[in-house]
């Protein structure tokens, strides 16, 4: 059976440390976000940690919600693209084909999670950084959309190795950069078609919910509620 990738995000474990954000940036050659990017609201970060305040002063608590592309089964972003630059592949991934993208930005408008980003200008790295770029990942030129790919380069490598050696361990230990960097294991990635994988178990956890469930997008990412009894964040409904 084909692999179907998914992720469980345990809100209870997330400390908001932003390690995933940094790991993602280095893995996926994301342009360096300068002040002007932030001020113009054009910063790119495939995974972000939204921070919400809860409670009244002085009993204020910070809540963190790591957000990345939800790789929806019924992705609203896909059918609106006129050139098939984004579509659903057979492994449950919502893939983005940079070469085909003409930059209509319609997909970004139609994404309920704001997980899609546009390259408003050509990304530039300082001269010395050029050698640090990940050679497995394309550098996106200006005018195209980009978003979390679940580190598709790692997935491809692992499936290739698994096929070559016949060792399923390559797939079972596969992790995208964010999950790998997460110090508290709040992000758990894995194959949903493998009933024994940790992510499959978490998908049936009591605390499990999906974001914006009322939109019916059937994401491949599920969230696990905060356990904290006095202030568990309610699932977000549209």
């Amino acid at each position: 059976m084909a692999n179907k990738w998914g992720m469980a995000v345990d809100i209870d474990r997330c400390t908001g440390c932003q390690a995933c954000v940094i790991a993602c940036m280095s893995e996926n050659n994301i342009p360096i976000n300068l002040d002007e990017h932030f001020n113009n609201r054009r910063a790119i970060s495939w995974i972000r940690v939204d921070r919400y305040w809860e409670g009244e002063y002085p009993h204020v608590k910070a809540r963190f919600l790591p957000l990345l592309c939800q790789h929806c089964g019924n992705a609203p972003c896909e059918p609106v693209c006129p050139v098939y630059a984004t579509f659903h592949n057979d492994q449950g991934l919502n893939v983005q084909v940079y070469n085909r993208c003409v930059g209509t930005r319609y997909c970004a408008n139609n994404c309920p999670f704001h997980a899609r980003f546009f390259n408003y200008r050509r990304p530039v790295w300082p001269e010395t950084y050029n050698n640090y770029l990940n050679e497995d990942v394309t550098v996106r030129d200006r005018g195209v959309m980009e978003k979390c790919s679940f580190c598709v380069q790692r997935i491809n490598r692992a499936t290739r190795e698994a096929k070559r050696t016949g060792d399923e361990e390559f797939i079972n230990t596969l992790q995208p950069a964010c999950a790998q960097a997460c110090p508290t294991d709040a992000l758990v990635f894995g194959n949903l078609n493998n009933p024994n994988s940790q992510v499959s178990t978490l998908f049936h956890d009591d605390r499990e919910y999906t974001l914006q469930e009322s939109l019916g997008t059937e994401p491949n990412i599920r969230y696990l509620k905060k356990v904290d009894k006095e202030a568990a964040p309610e699932p977000v409904h549209a």
Partner: peptide
């Protein structure tokens, strides 16, 4: 020449 950087577009107002 400059790309869409010269516009006022941003996130989430992509249009």
């Amino acid at each position: 020449w400059q790309g869409l950087w010269v516009t006022g577009l941003q996130r989430p107002a992509f249009w």
